[in-house]
């Protein structure tokens, strides 16, 4: 807050450059410190177990799929929306993906790539449906995505008969599922690339700028010539597609669909986004914050297991952090409205 305001009649040539370096917003900086503190504590108490290469790798692998979803969720929430359907869309996409791969013979790279494409396309389709219903039919996002939450999961179970499907091509599981590049698991690489693109797009491109504008004041955006409905559709489509990608990642990791395993992905993603400083009222937020918000629960869980604390405490701690994050957001909003 101090860097941009204050007495600046004699300011530098542009503030943009300074701003670009200051990529942390205040609440993100705070929550980032919390994450660093957690890491430091666990690493100091159990350096052998917590700070080992294997354990760090496990934390990252565990967070990878959620991170991909949460990047999409950041765009949705910055646009003042919500998407409850991400977990179901993930499951549906993984089912479509494996159905396509099975139909093509379960082996070989072409089949694997077709499966990846099919999964992402299935996610994209759900995202488009969400976006059209929200932006064009003007049904509240909460209701639309609550509806598609049920519908996507239900359809996935209808297609599979309620049992998990196996038969992922070994190429996919060995590369994306277990493979590493320079010691870094491919799952993590994919999540990192998605995150990096998300950061750049939200912060430095017109698409990102419109996302903030639509979330901040859709009427202002409309009058400025932004095609608000079309933009919202794109935002939900993006999130759907990322959920589809996460579905494929999950398939590759477990060599199987995991129909029952993603019921709370939506809430975990929303919690991560909000913990990361993104405002549920829209217009404020960063993808970097979301990264921090994803890692706080996973570091806590991992650390508690290592410290032999009952892992259930993780859920308690995350709940506290979540509520604290939203409370800070509220205080900031109120302080600003008083101006």
């Amino acid at each position: 807050m101090s860097a941009a305001t204050g007495s600046d009649r004699t300011q530098p040539v542009t503030e943009s450059r300074a701003r670009r370096l200051r990529f942390l917003t205040d609440s993100t900086a705070l929550i980032f410190l919390v994450l660093l503190a957690l890491v430091a504590v666990f690493a100091l108490v159990r350096p052998d177990a917590f700070a080992s290469v294997n354990n760090v790798r496990n934390i990252f692998i565990g967070a990878a799929t959620l991170l991909v979803i949460a990047v999409g969720m950041t765009f949705v929430i910055v646009s003042a929306g919500i998407d409850l359907s991400v977990g179901s869309v993930l499951v549906f996409s993984s089912v479509i993906s494996i159905k396509v791969m099975t139909a093509l013979g379960n082996q070989g790279w072409p089949v694997a790539i077709a499966g990846v494409a099919a999964g992402m396309a299935a996610g994209l389709a759900w995202g488009l449906l969400n976006g059209v219903l929200i932006a064009k039919a003007r049904i509240p996002a909460l209701i639309v995505t609550l509806g598609t939450l049920g519908a996507a999961l239900g359809l996935a179970q209808i297609i599979t008969g309620g049992v998990n499907l196996r038969g992922v091509p070994v190429e996919l599981t060995e590369a994306l599922g277990f493979g590493r590049v320079a010691g870094i698991p491919w799952l993590v690489v994919v999540a990192a690339v998605v995150t990096a693109i998300g950061i750049v797009v939200l912060r430095f491109t017109r698409f990102g700028r419109y996302t903030y504008a639509v979330g901040s004041n859709p009427e202002a955006a409309r009058r400025a010539g932004v095609k608000v409905e079309r933009h919202l559709i794109k935002v939900y489509a993006l999130t759907g597609m990322l959920s589809g990608l996460a579905g494929v990642m999950s398939l590759a990791r477990f060599s199987s669909t995991n129909i029952g395993g993603h019921l709370t992905d939506n809430l975990q993603a929303i919690a991560a986004v909000v913990i990361g400083g993104t405002s549920l009222f829209g217009g404020i937020g960063t993808v970097f914050g979301t990264v921090v918000g994803v890692f706080i629960p996973s570091v806590l869980q991992n650390g508690f297991v290592i410290l032999r604390v009952q892992p259930f405490w993780q859920e308690v701690a995350v709940g506290v952090v979540l509520i604290a994050a939203v409370y800070i957001d509220q205080i900031k909003r109120r302080a600003r409205e008083r101006l």
Partner: peptide, 17 residues
């Protein structure tokens, strides 16, 4: 019709970046 969460420059260029 200004977007509250955007800064002055971002508002002035909104839609014509």
């Amino acid at each position: 019709a200004l977007a509250d969460n955007l800064d002055v420059v971002q508002n002035m260029y909104l839609g014509r970046e």
